[in-house]
């Protein structure tokens, strides 16, 4: 057997291809559910601290400098063109600031050090918090 043949035989066997395919298929199905499902109507930015719902803000609203204070620190929220951003934060890793904007239902920005989660939800989902 040539070298490439040995490599394939020991590196990627049938079961390996099966596992890779299973994971790719689940990624594909999850992507369709999370990323491409249609939505309509008013969307809201929902703020959660320590897993508890705090408030919802319609995405149409324009907010340039909305401070969210928690016992862990402060994040500055911005809503512009129906997109939600964390503009500034005094947290350790700045992952919330670096994660960019969110605008589709079920998307989220997380600031783990501040136990803060911002999600996008539709009117029906926001209604359930009341």
């Amino acid at each position: 057997m040539n070298k490439a043949g040995v490599f394939i035989k020991k590196f990627a066997k049938k079961k390996d291809i099966l596992i890779a395919s299973l994971i790719l298929i689940s990624a594909f199905i999850l992507a369709i559910i999370f990323w491409f499902s249609p939505f309509e109507g008013q969307l809201y930015a929902c703020i959660y601290i320590d897993g508890e719902f705090i408030e919802s803000i319609p995405l149409q609203e324009e907010l340039l400098q909305e401070e969210i204070k928690t016992q862990y620190g402060t994040n500055v929220l911005m809503i512009l063109d129906n997109k939600v951003y964390i503009k500034e934060s005094d947290c350790t890793y700045q992952q919330c600031v670096n994660s960019g904007s969110i605008s589709r239902p079920a998307q989220a920005i997380v600031c783990a050090p501040h136990s803060l989660v911002i999600t996008i939800e539709d009117a029906e989902s926001v209604g359930r918090h009341r």
């Binding site: 990624a27 594909f28 999850l30 992507a31 999370f34 990323w35 959660y48 897993g51 079920a106 998307q107 989220a108 997380v110 783990a112 136990s115 989660v117 999600t119 996008i120």
Partner: peptide, 11 residues
Amino acid sequence: LSSAAILYNLP
């Protein structure tokens, strides 16, 4: 963080 929305980027 009790938020299912975090799974958004799992795919």
